[in-house]
């Protein structure tokens, strides 16, 4: 069954069809939400909430954009909300998380170390503002084109390009000292 058939069956109350839809879209939602929030328990909650929102709004889904774009937009919006909540929480309870991460990262400077690289990138992404993180996740992790990224975020293509440039510039600033000073 393709997406439109699964959507049609789901709107008539076919739970198996919706479960298949969830299974098909899970990789996309997981890469979006985990890219935005990191691998945390909240990511799973936001992932589930994304599909619940999709389920509730399937009846009003007109098909103007693809289901992938539609579900990614829900996932991005919910992730940005979660990041805002985190920020509010961290303003109340100052977290020592950042210092711990930085401490661990400084031990891994070997660029061949895949896990260390991953940690570095996750650390760098964590430091970005949600709007910059969103373009990095959509364009570089999910592999959307600039046009598709603009459509998901409902902004102009020029905005996506400038956010991408600024986000990569910031990542460069954050990661250069951690990767050694052979560049920058």
């Amino acid at each position: 069954m393709n997406y439109s058939e699964l959507i049609k069956s789901s709107t008539t109350g076919d739970h198996q069809a919706f479960q298949k839809l969830v299974e098909s879209l899970e990789p996309l939602v997981a890469s979006t939400v985990i890219g935005m929030l990191g691998n945390s328990p909240e990511s799973e909650d936001v992932g589930q909430e994304t599909f619940i929102r999709l389920y509730k709004s399937l009846g009003s889904f007109k098909g103007d954009s693809s289901i992938e774009t539609y579900v990614t937009r829900i996932a991005i919006n919910l992730s940005i909300n979660e990041l805002k909540k985190r920020k509010r929480r961290s303003m109340i309870f100052k977290s020592a998380e950042t210092d711990i991460d930085l401490g661990n990262l400084s031990d891994h400077k070997n660029p061949q170390d895949e896990e260390a690289n991953r940690q570095l990138i996750e650390y760098g992404l964590k430091k970005l503002k949600p709007e910059f993180k969103a373009v990095i996740v959509l364009r570089l992790i999910n592999g959307y084109s600039v046009k598709e990224t603009a459509k998901v975020l409902n902004v102009a293509e020029g905005t996506v390009l400038s956010r991408l440039a600024r986000a990569q510039g910031k990542l460069r600033k954050i990661l250069t000292p951690l990767l050694g000073d052979h560049r920058g």
Partner: peptide, 13 residues
């Protein structure tokens, strides 16, 4: 860096 960013992709919960 762009390649490394792609490597953090996690495709499942």
């Amino acid at each position: 860096i762009r390649q490394s960013i792609q490597s953090v992709k996690t495709e499942s919960f």
